[in-house]
Each structure stands twice: as structure tokens, then as C-alpha cells.
Amino acid sequence: MQRHTFVMAAAAAALAVSLGAQAQDWPTQPVKLVVGFPGGSTPDMVARTLSEPLSKMLGQPVIVENKPGAGGNIAAATVAKATDGHTLGIVINGNLTSSPMLYPSLAYDPAKDFSNLCLLTTAPLILVAPADAPEGAAFFKKAEEEGDRWNYGSVGVGSVSHLGMELLKSEVSGLKPMQVPYTGGNPAVVTALISGQVQMGLMPPGTAMPQVKAGKLKAVGVTTTERSPLVPDVPTLAEAGVKDFTLEVWDALVGPASLPAPVQKKISDSVIQILHTPEIQKKLLAQGWKAVGSTPDEMKARVQKETALLGNIIRSQNIKLQ
């Protein structure tokens, strides 16, 4: 019995040494960073901001590969199925939270097929309206009076601009605007808001604020509990009387679930260190992002919380995409 215990202990020690060496040696070839959106998109800019410092830290080139399509789900599936040990991906929150409920034939399972490495960046959404709309609580009073005679613009069914508005409707009694989805994305929604075709919409700061500053749109409130450093002059929805409503968009770093744990830790620790540097924080802030640099456990908890939150809306509205 003692000999068996000794052999088991020795095997465990040898495995620990082997795994430690594996992490120390990794990467042994260029690292691919797959992004599910085209060049110039916000996830792409985050990827390219991180690729150079990460390459220096790891001692191997970090190559950004754009693989757009299906709201980032094609790229996410590519990462989930990767077997070379050197493929990572930058995904948006929908890829890990709402996509499994929206796409019945999704080619991956976020809970099983990924290693959660780091929550990279967050940004609030801004509830915007035409320039002549009332402000603050008066806006919501008017919206309740208009009921379903008012519309809101979204960039498509299942998008955060759709699910976020439905979530807001579920939390604000009497708020009943109807969705008008636009295939032209945020620019089309902006045009519809300016012309008065729709009366509200949720947008990222980078899209909303140039129009607000130009006097073409009004920022009703930001979807965080406190004012965002990205848009410090925009009040929170709580200041307009909508309590406890929080919704952000974010980018995260993932790898395939097969990635060895010591390698996962090496990547996470490296990226967290990079994101905590003032230079990178400043660059990301200029792109409209707040640098986060969470631990894998913190990222996992965030994914689980938002999956439950958005899942309630998707199920109650029976929203499905093919």
C-alpha cells in the first residue's frame, strides 16, 4: 500500500513538472488571434492593440486573423475546434451568452468548448433619442404616454440593441415601443433617429456621441449604475428614474477547452498585466473601451450572470434565429 502511494505521488509530481515545463516553453510557434469581425471593427481594434505587447511578452508573433460572419459565431467555432494549441479568439458577449439560445444549430457550446481567459474591455450603451426629445424622467413619461405608437431602432433581431431594449421594457412599467430592425447597422439607426422614424435606440458611445455632440441626437442616459468614464457628461438611466438597470457590451479572450491549464494561466496573467498598463488603458479609452483585465473566474461569473439575464428575455419573447 505504501509503495502504491509512493508511486502515485511520484507520478503526480512528474506530471506537475511536465505541465510546468509545458507552460514555460509555450508558445513554440506564432499565436493566432481570431476575430469574428472585419478589420476596423471595435473587436479588431482591441485585438490589434493587444497583439504587439502580447507578442513581446510571449516571444512569438501574435497574428490577428479576421474571420467575420454570423455575428462572430463562425470565428468562435473556429477557436472552439482548434487543436494546434496556439489559436485564441476575441469574442463579444453575445457569442458566449445569447447565441446558444438564439441559434438552435450553433456549432459550439460556450460552457464546454472554451477556456475563459480574460474579460478584456467593457463599454456601456447609451439610450439615444431625436434631438428634440424630452430629457430625463420626462422622456420616460412621454414614452409611457405614447406606448406602442413609439418605435425603437435596432441593428437586428437578437442583437444587443434589440435584447437590451426588451430588457429595458421589462423593467420600466408602461414602456412599450416596438422594434424596427435595420440591416444597415448603427448608421441606418442613426439616420432613422435623426429623421424621427424611430424615437429611441441603444447605441455604443463611439456611434452615439458624435451625433449627440453635433446636436443631432439626445443622450437620454447611459446603461451603467454610475456615470461612465467614457462619457462622463451623460447621465445614468438611474438619474432619469430607471433604477438598477445595467447592460454593457464587452470583449473577451478565449481559447479552446483543450488548452492546458498552465498555458491558460500564462496567457491570462500576461494579458491582465498588459491591460493594467496606463499606455494600453489610454489607447483603449480612445477607442471607446474601458480596460478590465479580469481573472478567468471573474469572467466565468460574468458570462453566467448575463446568460441568465438575457435568457429570460429570449425565452419570454420566444426569439430564435437560424
Rank of each mutant, 00 (worst) to 15 (best):
L285R: 11
S41W: 06
S161H: 08
K142S: 14
E298T: 03
A261S: 14
N93D: 15
S51L: 10
M203T: 01
A111Y: 06
V157R: 00
T5L: 13
P61L: 10
M8Q: 13
G71A: 06
S41F: 07
A10L: 11
P260E: 12
A107K: 09
A208R: 02
S316M: 04
F245G: 01
L193C: 02
G293E: 02
V234D: 03
V34M: 14
K176H: 13
T122Y: 01
D251K: 03
L259F: 12
A192P: 02
L321A: 02
N318Q: 15
A261I: 13
N312H: 07
R3H: 12
G136L: 07
S98D: 04
G89S: 08
M45S: 05
N116H: 09
K213L: 11
G20H: 07
R149M: 08
A138G: 14
L168N: 02
V155K: 03
Q317W: 05
S55T: 07
A82D: 12
F140E: 10
K320R: 14
P296F: 03
V91P: 00
A257G: 09
V46G: 01
G89Y: 00
E298S: 05
R149Y: 09
L102N: 00
G255T: 03
P110G: 04
A23E: 11
G156P: 06
A308I: 13
K56N: 13
A208W: 04
M1C: 11
E279Q: 15
S294R: 01
L310W: 11
L54D: 04
E239I: 10
L102W: 01
L217W: 04
N312I: 03
T97W: 02
T42F: 03
A12R: 13
